[in-house]
Design a protein around this nucleic acid. Structure first.
Lengths: 140, 140
DNA sequence: GCTTGACCTTCCCATAAGGGGAAGCTTTAT
DNA sequence: ATAAAGCTTCCCCTTATGGGAAGGTCAAGC
């Protein structure tokens, strides 16, 4: 029941920058905010909740496109939780893949770093490993 | 000692797209390729090795900026492996942070997904958790 | 010798998810 | 009344990469 907030106040309260709030509105992720007579955007509880929703979803790593879908479901009283869960599980799969990829890099690079002297000498296992073998021609 | 390759052949051989090869040259990451009389770029062993280097470094997740530094060190006979290792260790730190962040998301989201029925009913633990508590006003 | 298709050139545009900042208007506080 | 702070729109920057157009070039086939 509080009176509507300006965009800066909404930003502080939700942790979403004013810049991003305008952007989310522009791309149709959020309904257009009401305006004062002079054109200032105004945010009521409904919009604030959606901003908080976006913030939380971003913190969970969802893309804006996924968040748009999630927000539509959130607003829809007839949604089926199956649809929400499907988006979440897909995202979990993506996260697992990213972790696997990063873990692979971590392992490979840690091995190379372990083999690098890290001193003032020029020879370096890391650099040596960086040129693929099939490009190493025996110098004339 | 093979004769120089065209950009397409170099792309196939190194796994770096022709588009990206031109881009790396444009941003000064690679020395300018030689040209035929008609303007076609030509790639010799030295350039091919650097393209392969870039490809490997990308596979290890290094940014183009980091790769530029690494390439400079690779070309410099007076480098100190310390400098190379420093870049690698910084990157390892970045990787660890990303893994930690993704793992955090994974844990949080898996918990929510476990609490979501995933059926045809509208109530959903995931959506419920998405609105921060401080934005939940007791509806009039 | 000419045509055709594959390859090359440069140039411009688009992506995701923001940030920076200018020019100008409004509101608030002194 | 004036100054500061906040709001508006508009445009440009980022990272690393892909898409595609318009036009020049090269090699193979006939």
């Amino acid at each position: 029941m509080g009176k509507p907030l300006t965009i800066g106040e909404a930003a502080t309260l939700t942790g979403v920058s004013a810049k991003m709030i305008r952007y989310y509105e522009e791309i149709g992720m959020l309904p257009e905010a009401a305006r004062t007579a002079s054109g200032y955007r105004l945010y009521n509880g409904f919009l604030l909740q959606q901003l908080g929703f976006i913030r939380q979803a971003r913190d969970l790593g969802f893309s804006l496109e996924e968040i748009q879908s999630l927000l539509r479901l959130w607003r829809d009283p007839c949604r089926e939780s199956r649809e929400v869960k499907a988006i979440a599980e897909q995202h979990l799969t993506d996260i697992s893949q990213k972790i696997a990829e990063l873990t692979r890099m971590q392992g490979a690079l840690a091995q190379l770093a372990a083999d690098c002297g890290g001193n003032s000498a020029p020879n370096c296992a890391i650099l040596d490993a960086m040129v693929p073998e099939h490009l190493l021609t025996t110098p004339a």
